Computed example of a mutant assay.
Amino acid sequence: MGCALSGLGVEPAKEVPDGLGSAAKNRSSWKAEEEGSKATKPRTLSEAQKLLIQDSWRSLHQDITRVGIIMFIRLFETHPECKDAFFLFREIEDLQDLKMSKQLQAHGLRVMSFIEKSVARLTQEDKLEQLATDLGRSHYKYSAPPKYYQYVGVQFIGAVKPFLKDRWTLEVEEAWEGLFAYITTLMKKGYQEAERGCGMNKSTDPEKTETSSIGSIQNSV
């Protein structure tokens, strides 16, 4: 089977360790979050990092459709188990066919739109926090667990490097790693809040509790 990325002029994705890219400090902190039980207040970005992200995003904006496709193809190449969270194209085995999937293109654009909104809110921390937390809550509804979130940041960075070429520097990479670490922590927080809220609703709903009890009794008869 031919590589799905060859027609896009980008090298196939390589397996990446847990964490984001080459910045050791961010990678270590991300791994600690992955192994921890609860998300904490994320570390904010410096003003210089925000400017680097905004500037690089302006350079990427015209290519966001291609970046979205490449990002997800890379994601499914390196972590095929992630396809389980996408019922629309989980059955598509051939990555070349997946690259042509309208559903994949649409989802890639939705992710790019979220990143664009995040970049626009870099100077409005309360709004960015709300945006990312709400996204985590919605992912609970879609049964997309937090263990997958960090991989998207890894593959986004891998996808955009060829587009920025010599404009991609270690400082730019660390800035984007910091943003994805920030977003991922808040998404995990939102997911956990939704999970706890769902658990509380189930335990406090008398009708559901009674129905569950009746079902247990019937099954035991």
Rank of each mutant, 00 (worst) to 15 (best):
L170R: 14
E93F: 03
T185S: 15
V67I: 12
T133S: 07
S6K: 13
Q96I: 09
S113F: 07
Q130M: 14
F72H: 02
P162F: 02
T133M: 10
E129M: 15
S37W: 11
P12W: 06
E173M: 00
P12S: 07
D166Y: 09
L135S: 12
K99N: 09
S101L: 06
A175W: 08
G2W: 11
G36M: 07
A132C: 13
I64V: 13
L88G: 00
I73H: 03
V154L: 07
R27V: 03
T211L: 13
D63H: 14
K83E: 02
C198N: 15
G153M: 05
Y182M: 08
W176F: 01
D94N: 14
T78D: 00
T78M: 05
L98F: 03
M200W: 13
G9D: 01
P12L: 00
D166S: 13
G190R: 13
T209N: 14
P42N: 03
D63P: 02
T40M: 09
R167L: 13
Y142K: 12
P12E: 05
F180H: 06
S37D: 11
K38N: 12
L20K: 03
F180C: 03
G153Y: 02
G7E: 01
S101Q: 05
E116I: 04
M71D: 01
G136I: 10
S101Y: 00
I115R: 03
Q103A: 07
L45R: 09
S46F: 01
F87L: 14
K147F: 11
P146T: 02
Q49I: 03
C198G: 14
G9L: 10
D166T: 15
T185H: 08
S220I: 12
S28M: 10
G215P: 02
A39H: 07
N26W: 03
L95F: 05
S46A: 04
S46V: 06
G136L: 01
W57A: 06
K41A: 12
E210S: 13
V172S: 04
D18Y: 14
P145G: 12
I73G: 03
F114V: 04
S212R: 15
L8M: 08
A23F: 12
A159H: 01
S101R: 03
K208T: 12
K41S: 10
G178Y: 02
N201V: 09
D126Q: 15
G197W: 08
L98H: 07
Q155P: 00
G21F: 04
L170S: 15
Q192R: 06
G108C: 01
Y149T: 01
K25Y: 01
D205M: 07
T44V: 08
T65A: 15
A106N: 14
A132D: 03
